[in-house]
Design a protein around this nucleic acid. Structure first.
Lengths: 337, 337
DNA sequence: TACGTTTCCGAAAACCTTTAAGTCCAGGAG
DNA sequence: CTCCTGGACTTAAAGGTTTTCGGAAACGTA
């Protein structure tokens, strides 16, 4: 820990110029002779001067800092968004002030005040699910974009993954493999994600003129439920040849139970998961074909649109971003794996 | 987005007092009549005034903000530390400025400068492994504490999990269950974590006067390696009755391969993992007995000691924090599960 | 020499808050 | 009545930077 930090004043006097000239030299503005600039820069390096962002922000009204308000304590969705946001910001020297409300509205208000008093230039709100969440933007002095969980106010800017389209894509993949007895196991219906994915599932089947194998089984987002559902489904629909699972956890459990029942994946039953949570999707055997929601892209996009909004170019509405089907062994055509 | 924000000036003139009085009233200081304070508070509420943290910080030299510099892009270790730190800070209204260097030294320098120029009060550096990392604190104007990955400079303040002790604890647990043919499968030896855990493993065996079953198998931190190692170990040491794995991923793979070989877990072979990575440890069957490194506690502790260091009460050295053995089904005594 | 133009630099205001120091007044003590 | 005390409030400075505007020097032209 060194002593006091150097200010532009110290730099100026060391270089033998006024602070105005020093400021101009450091910021690369005109009106300063090359030799003088040289001296100032040398002085700044000598003192390892770093401009005080507080003073600068106080004057300009811009802190080059954004707040990221998340609700999922575990970071399953917040982290990729954060990374993507950092990517988008990185070039522009933006910093991210991170707050985790842990699903508590009071804590959220608290954090919101703290961020606002620190004069962030904008806010990214990350939901813990794709369920619409209460808007936070009512007469806030800074722009806000919502990522993953959209705002319930359509005049806000929200970015969500295209769950419906992704589910349809997954099912089309199964259909293309020749599977015709396709089941669906997913999470709780109070999750919009579960409902959307089921909608996509049905849409793809309907368009292909294929009947669903059995009923949709809704449980929780766990491996345990995946195993349980597999047993139920295999009992009810023995001739099933594929299943679309609402999450990788469910898919992992499903695969495990299927194998224990003596059926092979993918030869007898092809399985598609959702999330591309790598610890599950690449490490289970066989590796899971799954939907990747491109959360980093989503985060980056949200950050870019936040920039635009800060510049006064907001793009209101709920924007759905395409997902991607990552094809792995759990849906290999027979004979290939 | 509303218009310009209210300043204390607006509050003062609305309340009909000077800004000094307004400041005193808002900050709960003496020298102001109750009725006057009332008026000021009402005016502040009316304008929804929020003090400008930049101006305040400029004056006081304290931003009530700390930087968290992490290197593990995936967030496996950074997140719990962040949560713990937020917990410790929460009460005191601290905010966390998060930067991810992604293992790139240049990017780290870059972020460091950005944080310093924003005048953070302190810094927490989170390593991506427990390997000592280059110190970043050389003549920095703010205190730094290292979490998970210690600094290579012993005069810095570092907090690391007690891998040696935890491994010994895990092995003692297996010994207490009556197991005597215990193997060890772990990650790459260039990880200090792998070496420390092996050391604890050996220490516990030596103290008990028990021989290790087979050689320590070092591979990578993956499920795939766990499966592979299980096959090798079962081949070389068929009468093995327990194994201590260097990570939950390895343990999950090990369990899977053991079951496929027709041996039962825990009845024939007890398995202990490491990390308590819940998606693996609680969801695999049987649920894994594993070491929890208490990373949230570690983060909280680091944050608290950062506070102390900010107040000038630094506690130099590498501090090891105890881990915790979470006992689940993979080490149940025979007949219990 | 007088004057206009260009180039470079400096003085000062502004951003918003806190706080030390100062002003004013009422009331109590001598 | 005068002096002092203390309470309630205001003035002004400070914190570090950017920016506007004015000033000075150098140079060319009439």
């Amino acid at each position: 820990m060194a002593g006091k930090r150097a200010t532009i004043n110290d730099v100026a006097s060391l270089a033998g110029v006024s602070i105005a000239t020093a400021s101009k030299a450091l910021n690369g503005r005109q009106d300063v002779r090359a030799a003088t600039r040289e001296r100032v820069l040398a002085a700044a390096a000598e003192l390892s001067f770093q401009p005080n962002a507080l003073a600068r922000g106080l004057l300009s009204g811009q802190t080059r800092t954004v707040g990221l308000l998340t609700s999922d304590s575990v970071g399953r969705f917040g982290i990729p968004v954060l990374l993507g946001a950092e990517d988008a910001f990185g070039a522009g020297e933006m910093a991210v002030l991170l707050c985790d409300a842990r699903g508590d509205a009071i804590r959220e208000q608290h954090h919101l005040r703290a961020l606002l008093s620190r004069r962030v230039d904008g806010l990214i709100v990350v939901g813990e699910s794709t369920n619409p969440r209460p808007s936070v933007s009512k007469d806030l002095p800074v722009p806000v974009v919502y990522a993953y969980g959209p705002s319930d106010d359509p005049s806000d800017v929200s970015f969500v993954p295209d769950d419906v389209g992704a589910a349809a894509m997954a099912v089309n993949h199964l259909l293309a493999l020749g599977r015709r007895r396709i089941g669906h196991v997913t999470g709780p219906t109070h999750y919009k994600a579960a409902r959307d994915r089921e909608e996509g599932f049905h849409r793809a089947l309907t368009e292909a003129g294929v009947e669903q194998a059995g009923q949709t089984l809704s449980g929780v987002w766990s491996q345990r439920w995946g195993r349980h559902a597999a047993e139920m489904l295999l009992m009810a629909e023995p001739e099933i040849d594929a299943v679309f699972c609402g999450s990788d956890q469910i898919a992992a459990g499903f695969v495990e139970a299927v194998r224990e029942r003596g059926r092979r994946v993918p030869d007898d039953i092809a399985v598609v998961g959702y999330d591309n949570w790598e610890v599950l999707s690449t490490e289970t055997r066989p590796a899971l074909t799954t939907v990747d929601m491109n959360l980093e892209v989503l985060g980056r996009t949200a950050a870019q649109h936040l920039f635009a909004a800060i510049d006064g170019k907001a793009t209101p509405g709920v924007h759905t971003l395409p997902c991607q089907l990552v094809i792995r062994d759990s849906t290999s055509p027979p004979g290939v794996s």
